[in-house]
Design a protein around this nucleic acid. Structure first.
Length: 123
DNA sequence: GCACTGACGCGGG
DNA sequence: TCCCGCGCCAGTG
């Protein structure tokens, strides 16, 4: 049932370009299930989407990095992002990236292309 | 079936 | 900006 969701999520996550950051809600939306933002985080945490997904490029709606909870060290995600040219700033909430500048901004066509891709894959 | 548990999101104060 | 509460939903025991 929700297995299709994870397959879709894996595809969308891998489509996030290097040097850009996407939000959980954004991934869920492109998967066609806007309310499943939490499942995206769950899936990444459990490695449910596979090994080759750029998990460090996924942040929450405010641009806050998940940090130590999910990576080896507290600043691994931050280092990976900065290596791609995305810099994070320290805030009381944690490290944050500027989604205005480094966010992955999707167009309506992107969403449409994913939708038909899923359709032809039957997932 | 029931009760937690989250890498979440959004509106309000 | 920050903090809080509520809504959401698949997994897990």
């Amino acid at each position: 049932m929700s297995y299709d969701f994870y397959r879709r999520a894996a595809i969308v996550c891998q489509a996030v370009p290097c040097g850009k950051a996407a939000t959980y809600g954004q991934i869920a939306l492109l998967c066609g299930v806007p309310k499943n933002a939490r499942q995206v985080g769950y899936a990444l945490n459990k490695g449910r989407l596979g090994e080759d997904v750029p998990a460090h490029r996924i942040v929450n709606a405010k641009g806050i990095l998940s940090g130590a909870a999910a990576f080896e060290t507290a600043d691994l995600q931050k280092r990976l992002l900065e290596k791609e040219g995305v810099n994070a700033v320290r805030t009381p909430m944690g490290w944050r990236v500027d989604l205005k500048k480094d966010g992955w901004h999707n167009t309506m066509e992107d969403a449409l292309r994913f939708r038909e891709l899923f359709e032809e894959l039957g997932i």
